[in-house]
Each structure stands twice: as structure tokens, then as C-alpha cells.
């Protein structure tokens, strides 16, 4: 229900004129969540970022779900890349050894090839993807949204009872708040 509410909010925000960075960062963080295999410590760390920064939850959950599916296909590549990072870059080895012998760090499973590959790709792609999502949102608002709102289907939807009921709910909710 929380996730569904967040997605509705996402559609609302997407269709408004504010919060483009929040949505873009939600998509970007969701991408990282989705790419990295589930691990309690990494999840906690990412969740911490989610709480600390203004990141849109709906965008993050939607992106998480989509990228998790996508990541399944990319796992063989993550495996090879992560394995190369862990074993094929001698300059990094002391760093890995240190991390391997530190408390708590081993719980991240960083020495697993898929975890290492996907986390590295996810973190490296975070900022480019953030900018890309921002650009896409802006484009959407400038062209797609206007076309959509002027379309017959959209106009028809506005005349339906469901839409009027939703509008009433929105007004009541605003009054309450």
C-alpha cells in the first residue's frame, strides 16, 4: 500500500512542475538497489542515503523493481567484471585484503564477484543515470505531458466519475492537512 501510494505520488509529481531532481535521484538510487544482490549491510547503507537525501521513494521502488529484473540478465557480466576487480587489479589487492580483515566489512559480501561487479557498476552509473533521468523528466514534461493532456483519451478520462471522485478525495485530503 505504501509502495502503491508512493507510485501514485510519483505520477502526480511527474505531472507537476517541481521535484525533478528528487525523482531522478530516486530512479538512480533504485537502480543501485536493483543491480546489487540483496545484502543487509548494503541495503542499510543505501536506505540511509534514501532517508538523508531528498529522494523520491516511489521513483526509487519502481526503479528498484525494474532494475532488479534487468540485473538478473546482467549477472554474468557483473560476475566477470567483479572477479576481474577482485583478482585482476593488483593495485587494489591490498585494499581488498584490508577490507577482508576488518570487522563488519566481510558482512557486505564485497568479495563476491557479482556483488562487487554490480555495486561498482551501480555506483559508477549513479551520477550519469541521475543526469539522464533528470533530462528525461524534463523532456517528458515539456513534450509528452502536454501532448498527453491534450489527447482525447485524457480529456475523456477527466469526464469520468472515477476522476471526479479522485478530485473530491484530493480536496478533502488538502482540507484535512
Amino acid at each position: 500500500m505504501f509502495v502503491l501510494g508512493q507510485i501514485i505520488k510519483l505520477i502526480q509529481l511527474l505531472n507537476s512542475e517541481k521535484g525533478a531532481w528528487s525523482i531522478a535521484s530516486g530512479f538512480a538510487l533504485g537502480m543501485v538497489f536493483g543491480l546489487v544482490p540483496s545484502n543487509i549491510l548494503i541495503t542499510v547503507a543505501l536506505f540511509f542515503f534514501f532517508c538523508l537525501f531528498r529522494i523520491h521513494g516511489g521513483a526509487m521502488f519502481l526503479s528498484w523493481a525494474l532494475f532488479a529484473l534487468f540485473a538478473y540478465l546482467l549477472d554474468p557480466l557483473f560476475d566477470r567484471f567483479g572477479y576481474w576487480l577482485l583478482t585482476g587489479v593488483p593495485s587494489l589487492t591490498p585494499f581488498w585484503i584490508r577490507g577482508y580483515n576488518l570487522p563488519v566489512v566481510p558482512w557486505t559480501n564485497f568479495n563476491n564477484s557479482v556483488t562487487m561487479g554490480s555495486l561498482t557498476v551501480g555506483l559508477a552509473a549513479f551520477f550519469p543515470m541521475l543526469l539522464l533521468f533528470k533530462l528525461l523528466i524534463d523532456r517528458y514534461r515539456q513534450s509528452v505531458l502536454i501532448r498527453l493532456s491534450n489527447s482525447r483519451v485524457f480529456k475523456y478520462l477527466r469526464t469520468t466519475k472515477v476522476y471526479s471522485l479522485y478530485k473530491k478525495y484530493e480536496r478533502v485530503k488538502e482540507t484535512m492537512s
Partner: peptide
């Protein structure tokens, strides 16, 4: 062996331990 993550599992690389 460490408990492998879900999905494709991957490979674990073990480094020298100090203790």
C-alpha cells in the same frame, strides 16, 4: 564457502587473513 547471494551466486574470492 560463504553463503552465496541469490540470483547467479557469483564467486567468492578469499584473501589472506591476518588472524
Amino acid at each position: 564457502e560463504d553463503e552465496k547471494p541469490e540470483r547467479h551466486g557469483g564467486r567468492f574470492v578469499h584473501f589472506p587473513v591476518t588472524d
